[in-house]
Design a protein around this nucleic acid. Structure first.
Lengths: 136, 136
DNA sequence: ATATTTGCTTGCAATTTGCAAGTGCAAACA
DNA sequence: TGTTTGCACTTGCAAATTGCAAGCAAATAT
């Protein structure tokens, strides 16, 4: 990812400069699903990201302050990755992507159930989700 | 873009399989701003997409039924690209990306004004925007 | 008839990806 | 007290994708 130059001042373009690739949002997704993940946790995801790509994306997301590294309580060797507030605030984007995908393809039933709750009270749902993610 | 295989059944992942790159959403953006664009119009955008990348992205977005080609009324040589309903329904995603970018960077004042309207009545704003895009 | 515009395609170098294997270090084990 | 194991990466390299420049063919303008 090219941290140095924005292609334009368009917000879509500058967002894509940060996470416009096939992998970054999957890391964000994993962290929204699990709140904190180790390097190995990301590797377990069904999309099977390569280890070098994962390392480079984690670094870039950290540089853009979407995620942050913290020490794992169990061992000094292990690291926990988690979302920063900037990352947590991507919740509405992620939900709207999910809602869009739901219209045009089959999505897992847990996601569908989540959307059902979301649609009952969008603002409330997002507020709760964000608060939950900011807790730990 | 790889139209052949989904990496997983996760809605984020399958969405990224369609438009997870640095350019596709900029094409969608241009079409949301202008409703219909020619090949040359896309080239005029500030991010300066290369002609071969543009051609390949237009083809892939067409295959995924996000956009469609229509004849230009003026000439047989010219083509108009526009969003399909599937593309139009990406409006909430695009707005939430814009809102997120607005929190962490400086965005053009027209976009900021748009967000202000959006925040007054999110549902209403989106409904109107979608209706407007579906008109032509 | 000739020139120009439009929507691409082609060629090629540079960058990025994806896969496999390797490395270094903490912690567990013997 | 070695030795092994597991975890978090790094490295090497082939393959794919990107980005730039140039080319090209059909339609339109002159």
């Amino acid at each position: 990812m090219n941290k140095n130059q924005k292609r334009s001042d368009c917000p879509i373009s500058s967002s894509l400069d940060i996470w416009g690739d096939k992998w970054s949002l999957l890391i964000v997704r994993d962290l929204m699903d699990s709140r904190q993940c180790t390097y190995g946790d990301f590797l377990k995801s069904p999309e099977k990201i390569a280890t070098n790509i994962l390392a480079s994306r984690l670094q870039s997301l950290e540089e853009f302050e979407i995620i942050e590294k913290t020490e794992h309580p169990d061992s000094k060797r292990k690291m926990f990755y988690k979302l920063t507030p900037k990352g947590v605030n991507m919740v509405p984007i992620m939900i709207e992507i999910t809602a869009w995908a739901d219209k045009y393809s089959t999505i897992p039933k847990e996601r569908k159930a989540m959307l059902k709750e979301y649609k009952k009270d969008k603002e409330g749902f997002i507020k709760t989700a964000i608060k939950e993610l900011k807790k730990v």
